[in-house]
Structures are given as C-alpha cells and as structure tokens.
Simulated scan of single mutants.
Amino acid sequence: MDLLQIIKLISIPKWVKFSSLTVIFCFMGLAIYAVFGGVRLAHDSGILQAGMGLLGVLLPLSVAIVFLTFYEAGVAPLKKATEKVLTQLIPEVLVCLGRDKENDQELTRVVTTPLLDYICRYLIKLPDKRELQLDVQLNVRKVSVVFYFPERKGRCRIACFSEFERLFEHTLAGARHEGYAANNVVGHTRIEDRCCDNLVLYKTLPRDFLWNSAEKLYFAQDMQVMVESLIQEADALLMPDEKIKD
C-alpha cells in the first residue's frame, strides 16, 4: 500500500482539523503582519526577515493542513467508492447485454435496487422478455455474485450443485479461470413470494480495487461477459417478463 492510499484511510477528528486550521491561520497572520509591518516596527530588518522566514515555513504547512481539513478520509470514501461501483459502473455495463450492434440501441433494461451499503440487486430485463435477477455484494476486497432462478411450472427444484455444473458448464469454467469460486451448496430464497434456487460465486479482489479505475472497469466488463454466458446457457430457467399465473 503506497503513501497516498494510507493517507486516504487516515481518519482525523474534526476538532483536531479545525484547531490546527485556527492555529496555522494565527501564525500566518503574524507572519504576514511581520513582513508588511516589520519595516515600520523596527529600524533594522530583523523582524522583516523573521516574518519572511516564518511565512516560508508556514505556507506549505498551511496548504497541507487546509487539504487535510477538507479532505474526506477514513471509511466514508470507501463507502462512496463501493456505492459508485454498485449503482453506476455495473449497471452501465449490464445494460449493454443484448445490444443491437447495427443501430446501437440499448435493448436491455436494468433495474437497480440497493439493499445495503455494500449489496445491490439487479433485475435484468432482456429483449426476448426473459428476466435475470442477481445480487452483487462488494466488501472492499471480496465480491459475491448471487444468481436467482425462480421456481417454474414443470421444473423441479435444483437441489444439487452438480446440476448447476451441468447447466452452466461453460460459464462456471470461465468464472473459475477469472478467479471465482462457487459455493457447492445450492441456496434457496423467496423473492416476491416465489421460491428461487441460488447460484453463488465469489472471489478475492486486488488490495487497491476501490482506488484502481482499471481494475474496477475490468471487473465490471468481465461480469458482463459472465452474465452474457449464463444467459445463453440458462434459457428456460430465467423468469419471463410476464409473471406466471397459477
């Protein structure tokens, strides 16, 4: 971790910031007064030289203190960076799914629903009226992706992970190549009164992920490729646009 990243993680109490700012402004005022009033205050240039020396020392120090006073550090910027990845970057790349390259129209709609500071749910409405719902949980250096496959008439519940491996052989192979691991236990969740079978993938991210724009873009674009592959293999497992009525 370099010095800039360490500074970003430093959390300084507000009273320390404003106390330091007050003190530095007082010294700056004395130094400026000594520089411009030193000639009138003494017959020699001692006060003038002292004021100029003090001003030379305080000027860069005051810039640093002003920066630290108004700079947002600690946990807050990490939360904001996480929110931007979840609510801006990921939806921007997911909406490209199913895009018509000839007329460059965005045919896919993505409904983003933040659940917590670090969890976001996406409902992807595809051009062919199918829907895919997934959650992304981003914990600074670890990400978990949960795909939901709703129960449908004429289809048995997925109870064994081996069935996921059979259905998504290509997708899981590519995900493992990119560092994802799969939870071998199939989860079951109720969403809007419908039972869903869950496929959970997770992986560790680089240490500077939230500060590295290239890493964030690569992660989002790679997720788009993974979701595209899963959509192609899922076929009938995806929830239709019109909900199935009993």
Rank of each mutant, 00 (worst) to 15 (best):
V23F: 11
Y118N: 15
L58V: 08
P127E: 08
E92W: 05
L4V: 10
P127H: 04
R99K: 15
L115S: 14
A182H: 08
N103P: 08
M226C: 08
K129Q: 10
D235M: 12
Q49C: 11
V75M: 09
I90K: 11
V186L: 07
I7N: 07
P114N: 02
T112E: 04
H188C: 03
C156F: 14
L97H: 08
T112N: 10
G38E: 07
T112I: 02
K243Y: 06
E242Q: 14
D222S: 15
Y218M: 14
G46K: 12
V110G: 08
E83Q: 03
L107H: 09
L230G: 06
F36Q: 13
L68N: 02
I65Q: 00
R166D: 13
Q5D: 11
K79M: 12
V111R: 12
F161R: 04
Y122G: 06
R152S: 07
P206T: 05
L217K: 08
F164C: 03
Q5I: 03
M1D: 04
I119P: 04
M239L: 14
Q221S: 11
T108V: 03
G187R: 08
E72S: 14
L48R: 06
F209V: 01
Q49G: 13
A81K: 15
S45Y: 14
D222T: 14
L55W: 08
K142M: 09
W211V: 15
V200W: 08
K80W: 10
G154L: 11
V227L: 15
V110W: 11
G74F: 00
L205W: 04
S62I: 01
V85H: 02
I47V: 11
K125A: 02
G98H: 03
Y180G: 04
K125S: 14
A50H: 09
D193C: 03
F219R: 01
F219V: 11
M239A: 07
C156K: 14
R130T: 07
F67T: 00
L68A: 11
I158K: 03
L167M: 08
T22K: 01
E233F: 04
R99Q: 15
L94G: 03
S45V: 06
K129C: 06
I191C: 05
K125I: 10
K142Q: 13
D222E: 13
G51L: 00
G187C: 05
K245M: 12
L86G: 07
T171P: 07
A42Y: 10
M226G: 05
